[in-house]
Design a protein around this nucleic acid. Structure first.
Lengths: 204, 204, 204, 204
DNA sequence: AATGAATGAGTCTTCATTCAT
DNA sequence: AATGAATGAAGACTCATTCAT
């Protein structure tokens, strides 16, 4: 079955190059505000031409969305804490999420941008929704694994919201270093985790 | 003392015109995404020239910041629920805040933008911090008025975060109308309020 | 002589594929403005790759020219009205030509483009000239068949010009439907035909 | 009334700069195919910035339309041949028009482009229609002044068409110099003029 | 103080053509 | 012969800000 293999190879090569572009974008996003990253820069960073970018993505928005998707998948993996010996703790879940956001402010910027802002195509909107839903499912699963049983979905919604809010409120805390912010946001995450762990069953 | 009076009049006129510009911006923000509002539009809406805008604000960012400040002050007023006969309920505080965000997505967009994003001047940063601090103080005061006593500041932080997070997570909930979103976000706000009311004393 | 046959087959296959490309282009031109048809679209419509197009034509212009040639040949056939029983009428000739232009605006667009516009290669120029000359010959022949004898060539030139001008003047007549335009242009064609039939002998 | 004068002056200055841009475009059009003229070139030629171009015209199409309008007005003036002592001859009218087209192929290119081609805004379409109608009115008036009385409008349509057609058919006559083409097109114009002068009354 | 025309760097995106496979 | 990914020059257009009047 040589044809299949050839097709597979081509697909792999395509995925590889797509990944090169993706990584280039991620690298730039780590350096600067995502709204100020240009196609030209991404192309240069990826070592391809501008046109090639558009060979893999119909426009910049879709590329950004893909970056976002990739990050979301990474978070999902990180939140996969099911260890038979030590069952996942809710605090641990919150810590992982907030740590990721601290390390990847671009992800959070993008989430804000896409959720609040822009005109997305129907297709892009669907993709975004899927991403967010998957992320939410993961949070819910983590909650379930952590022992929460009642009002699971609603609790997940509220917790997810609460965690997201931490960053918007403290990403720019006056006169604090990155490290201070990390500590403070993690502390808030811990509080929220505890609050939800004890309060949810009877109240929601 | 005619000079003083004249100076006062001039100052009043200056404030008036400043307000006209501010209102024009607010009006436009109510209609559309704040990133797409241009100086030209604001000038036209205010009935002044572009140059005049720059006579009152050094740049667009400062104007936007002023708009943000104005909104924040409005929220602060709305959160001033201290009524001797019926002490403010925590749920009510959360409801008022979330309702305001639903009605003024631009405010939330700006908060995201300024908190996560841009290069603000030292002066602008200080202003922003003051605004956020005042808002936080108000939330804290509302919490205090609602009877929360222990770990007040930290609880306020966590609650504020949680409320802010609601909008970023659900402003674009798939397939839901504005009204559905309003209902859902209010419901989450209520949950969070209850959770914090019961859980906070012993846990934080 | 198997080699000859094989060569013939190859040539036939080549012609066939060439025709597939040509037809694809024609189909697209029937749908939209010829300036907005891209190689990619033609390739997709023809079910071949972009590279294949360039295997049959050195560049897009040559392909467009070939399309134009094909259309011109079709017109030539349509203008072949010599019927022994009912000799061709000049009005009929004009009607056929204008009807074709109404039905194939792209042909007219191309004629304008090539005649007025672009940088054609020496080879392309020669081809274009041949096409136009053949078309003119046909008009002249039709005129001759219609009984015109004096100043035949010059009359043909003037008539051909007059007919071509009809479309440029009325293809976009304000507030008129395609059908209105068709009627109006045909009416003008009839007028022109009559004018030339009576006036030409003594005046030219 | 100093205000009025000031306003007048401003308007005059505005018109002047508008004219500078217009002239720059015209100059470039005289040098090359109008489809290949860019904003950058026009700006450089006019000695203004790119942004200034867009201060006077919302987009390139509107600028091109204005150039077209200006040319059409010039033709209209040229066709104003009413001289009490020697009444305008139809042949003269045709000669003037064809001479202008020979000298200003860009005008003809634009007429083709706008009439056959592009997506014009509602406003632009109205302008174009007005231009064409004014031109047609002028042709009709010239016909009237030349003594044509019967079927005036329809004759004007047919004549205008016929004249326009001359250029599309012969702007690229094979192996002929510009001068040859000028002579040939003028000769055809003369033929058409005579044909219409004698044939129209009874036939149209 | 008010004006608003001028600026121009910088943006995304298109698409005919090439060429290694 | 067929493929189609890669190319990159070139395009139109935006808009915060300045500054001469």
């Amino acid at each position: 079955m040589p044809e299949i293999r050839l097709a597979d190879l081509k697909q792999m090569e395509r995925n590889t190059r797509r990944h090169i572009i993706l990584d280039a974008a991620l690298t730039l996003f780590a350096e600067k505000d995502f709204k100020s990253v240009t196609v030209r820069e991404i192309a240069r960073q990826a070592g391809v031409s501008i046109g090639t970018i558009y060979n893999y993505y119909p426009n910049l928005t879709e590329l950004f969305l893909d970056v976002f998707l990739t990050s979301a998948e990474e978070i999902t993996r990180l939140l996969n804490l099911t260890d038979p010996k030590s069952p996942p703790d809710l605090e641990k879940v919150c810590e992982v999420y907030i740590t990721y956001l601290n390390d990847n402010m671009t992800f959070y910027q993008m989430m804000s941008h896409f959720m609040l802002g822009g005109d997305l195509s129907a297709d892009a909107t669907r993709k975004l929704d899927d991403i967010m839903k998957a992320l939410m499912d993961r949070i819910e699963a983590a909650l379930a694994a952590a022992g929460i049983r009642e009002n699971l979905r609603l609790t997940a919604h509220a917790l997810f919201s609460a965690l997201n809010g931490i960053m918007i409120s403290y990403a720019r805390y006056p006169g604090k270093s990155d490290d201070d912010i990390r500590r403070h946001t993690l502390r808030l995450a811990k509080i929220i985790a505890r609050v939800f762990k004890t309060a949810s069953p009877s109240l929601v």
